[in-house]
Amino acid sequence: MTVRLIATDLDGTLLRDDLSVSPRTRRALDAVRAAGIEVVPVSARQPRGIRMIAEQAGFTGWALGGNGAQCQHLTTREVLFEAHVDVAVQQAVAAQLAERLPGVLFVSVRSGGEVFIAQDGYAELAHFEDHKRDPATMGRHDLAAVLAEPSLKFIVRHPDRLPAELIMDVRALGLDGFAVTHSGAPFVEILAEGVNKAWAVAKLSDHLGIDRAEVLAFGDAPNDAELLAWAGRGVAMANAHPEARAAATEVTVSNQDDGVAMILERLLDDAG
């Protein structure tokens, strides 16, 4: 397999549990870039969250954030594409879900991922690690304000429901016009219809003139499953969710044991 693009998830995959890039992983990333291979972070994080670790990882080019809803260049800030959840879709989901699940709360992420409009009460449930954002900056908005504009990512959270349960609740509404996923964080993420990490990497690959068979992908969570199945070679981490493992063509060691670096080192050895 000829690899021209490496698409890697961050949290639970490239990053160790303390959110660091190990020296071994950084050496491996630098080596594949020196070999002319494009390395692209593909994350549920917004670009601002990706930029928090960009220097550690040496990321300076294209980044796919919001589970694929946006493609932004980390250096020039050029936006290649964005996909938004329609206002009408958000309103329908919120109205029906609030009736079914009292206490459910919503967030609209807008404007390149920089604007975070959280419903009153959401910040009390949140921690910095959830969104790589201080809860004190999330605001306290009424639901009408949350639903007023299209979202790159529409977040659904309930104080007593696990993400896997919430996804079933959303799907049970029987509505269409959106995609829903979760990344292991304590909420679910609603995206524009058809949007996921595979969709985004496919669009970027087309832009770069790279074939699907030339893509090597890494991931660990349910929101990585489509990408791992789509890529020419999909690698799940040993710590991966069963959905990600089932979608992958192979499994490497855990993020704590530098599983991405191990595969990249072998890739270069085989090419050498």
Rank of each mutant, 00 (worst) to 15 (best):
Pro23Glu: 08
Ala192Glu: 10
Ala202Ser: 13
Ala144Phe: 07
Leu175Arg: 09
Gly113Pro: 07
Leu80Ile: 04
Asp211Ser: 11
Gly174Ser: 05
Glu129Pro: 02
Arg171Tyr: 05
Gly209Asn: 01
Glu114Asn: 11
His182Ser: 14
Asn255Leu: 10
Arg157Thr: 14
Leu14Asp: 09
Trp62Leu: 02
Thr60Gln: 11
Leu267Glu: 09
Arg157Phe: 00
Leu143Ser: 08
Lys203Asp: 05
Glu243Lys: 10
Pro163Thr: 01
Leu143Asp: 04
Ala136Asp: 12
Glu243Gly: 01
Val251Phe: 05
Asn196Pro: 00
Ala172Leu: 10
Arg233Leu: 14
Ala94Tyr: 12
Asp86Glu: 15
Val253Thr: 15
Met168Leu: 13
Arg24Tyr: 03
Glu55Tyr: 00
Arg51Gly: 03
Leu5Pro: 09
Val146Thr: 04
Met1Leu: 12
His127Phe: 07
Glu99Phe: 00
Leu173Thr: 10
Val215Phe: 04
Glu243Ser: 13
Ala217His: 08
Glu226Leu: 06
Glu226Ser: 14
Met168Arg: 14
Glu165Trp: 05
Ala198Thr: 05
Val180Leu: 05
Ala236Trp: 06
Gly58Phe: 01
Val215Cys: 02
Ile210Ala: 06
Leu267Thr: 08
Leu15His: 12
Lys197Gln: 07
Arg26Gly: 08
Ser43Asn: 04
Ala213Gln: 14
Ala95Val: 05
Gln72Asn: 04
Asp120Ile: 01
Thr181Cys: 06
Val251Glu: 15
